[in-house]
Design a protein around this nucleic acid. Structure first.
Length: 447
RNA sequence: GCGACCAUAGCUCAGUUGGUUAGAGCGCCGGUUUGUGGUACCGGAGGUCGCGGGUUCGAGCCCCGUUGGUCGCCCCA
């Protein structure tokens, strides 16, 4: 705290739309990632890592030049060699690129999972950031509808294990194959052209950019027109129909609840067949918590072999906001140095317990007066303090079990603590190690 | 890119129709008390009230601008 005001320098600020996480939310965030890592193994998805930066063309070509993401939301820059580089706005394109450049078709069908930061230049709001984070799962090289189903069962289990399945529903649609989609799109344009005088300004713009998007417009003006628009069902080829039927049959077989939403479309151009979103009304304007679909043409469009593929991504921040109970951090043991002469002994004891796999907070610095107060703040199972009691022989430092708890919440039981202590210390205790007892521990010589 | 709301101590906030030296809780530092399930009491440090201009005898409060934040539109996880 400088009192010299003229010496004040401008404090640096975080880049808009980025966030610093500490404590509660950071714990939730980590919990989401850990749960994902555990569940993806149950489904046999291999962990992969792909670059945060890619040549701009990877995204421009795969997402579609006219999409908002490409036309105005990408963080792109020229590197020192003059190549246009882009911070990834999504995972799928980069994974498709990796599949091609590494010849991963030799492993097809390949199930992969990853997670990490993504970047989009958007106006930040609740559940929406310029640097955000996603979980991602993809199946490359499988044209089986049961791949779609498995991916959705995986997603469903993830949400259930996170404890947020309540209030989150799986909505499902099919966009058909290329022929179905084109026919439907033409019919939609015709329908909307007939009502163009009544459409909102936004939807008029969508009409030539992305007519499918009018279907899920939030504008009340558009709703009646959108609701009366033709469903894709009438335009589905027999194959497309069969495919969608097989996906839903797979979901039913696995006991996953789903809802048909004929108005569900995907923003990015490369989707075909299955499209899905897990949606909630608990995140303000952001309803989608996990979304994805099938993108059979993408890898070929990037110059690779014809490859059927399907995948999804989920917003980690959005999931973390829905997670109810954060896992409270509590060390099993706190070691407090009660006086200056026993600080090194406290350090020694702490490392000894940590090497035995016990989580320890050591308090050996700061105001001696406040140490015990801070120690209790950790709500640990046990507190051991080191000191030099007046009764002890000169030069001998002792530790006392100053506080203990042993109930169903205890992570370190009295028996386990007792075993570790007896293994390492000469223990002077007549009644055994019990909560609230004060015992004298003397370090065993030679350890 | 567009719109609404907000900005006071490290944090969360109060601050009357504009009126003396701008307050509380938490946190931090010191003292006393208590050796043990987030002790109690006492004291202290810490603010050009986001920034710049204007109105006024007088602005934390009113007006304009600006920066930042939040939420919504667009779009998306």
């Amino acid at each position: 705290m400088s009192k010299d005001k003229s010496a004040k320098i401008a404090t640096p600020q975080a880049v808009r739309g980025t966030q610093d996480m500490l404590g509660d939310f950071a714990d939730r965030f980590a919990h989401v990632v850990e749960t994902f890592e555990r569940v993806r193994r149950l489904y046999g998805y291999k962990r992969i890592e792909v670059p945060v930066i890619e040549p701009t063309a990877v995204f421009a070509r795969s997402l579609g030049e006219t999409t908002d993401v490409v036309s105005k939301e990408m963080y792109s820059f020229d590197d020192r060699g003059g190549e246009s580089i882009t911070l990834r706005p999504e995972f799928t394109a980069g994974i498709a690129r990796a599949y091609i450049t590494n010849g991963w078709q030799q492993y097809a069908p390949l199930k992969v999972a990853t997670h990490g930061p993504l970047f989009r230049y958007e106006r930040p709001q609740k559940g929406r950031y310029r640097q955000f984070h996603q979980l991602d799962a993809e199946v490359l090289g499988s044209d089986s509808p049961l791949a779609d189903a498995e991916l959705l069962v995986f997603a469903d289990q993830l949400l259930k294990e996170l404890g947020i399945a309540e209030g989150v529903t799986l909505t499902l649609n099919t966009l058909g194959d290329a022929a179905s989609r084109d026919a439907w799109r033409a019919a939609l344009v015709e329908h909307f052209m007939g009502h163009r005088a009544d459409l909102s300004e936004d939807s008029l713009a969508r009409l030539d950019k992305n007519p499918l998007r009018i279907l899920d417009s939030k504008d009340p003006k558009d709703r009646r027109i959108a609701d009366s628009a033709p469903d894709i069902d009438a335009f589905l080829t027999g194959e497309a129909q069969d495919f969608f039927g097989a996906v839903t049959a797979g979901l039913d077989a696995a006991g996953v609840a789903w809802e048909r939403n004929a108005r569900l479309v995907r923003g990015l151009d490369y989707y075909r067949h299955t499209a899905f979103e897990f949606v909630t009304d608990r995140l303000g304007a952001q309803g989608t918590v996990l979304g994805g679909g099938r993108y059979d043409g993408l890898i070929e469009a990037l110059g690779g072999p014809p490859t059927a593929a399907v995948g999804w991504a989920a917003g980690i921040e959005r999931l973390a906001m829905l997670v109810e109970e954060p896992v409270e951090y509590r060390p099993a043991l706190v070691v407090v140095a009660d006086d200056l002469s026993s600080e090194n002994f406290a350090v020694q004891i702490s490392s000894l317990f940590r090497r035995s796999g016990i989580a320890v907070e050591q308090i050996v610095a700061g105001s001696v007066k406040k140490r015990y107060q801070r120690a209790r703040g950790f709500r640990a199972d046990w507190i051991i303090k080191t000191d030099m009691p007046p009764s002890a022989p000169p030069g001998v430092v002792c530790a006392r079990l100053a506080f203990g708890r042993d109930d169903q919440d205890t992570t370190l039981t009295a028996e386990a603590l007792d075993a570790i202590i007896r293994q390492n210390f000469e223990v002077d205790l007549s009644d055994g190690l019990v909560p609230h007892a004060t015992v004298l521990l003397t370090r065993k010589i030679g350890n």
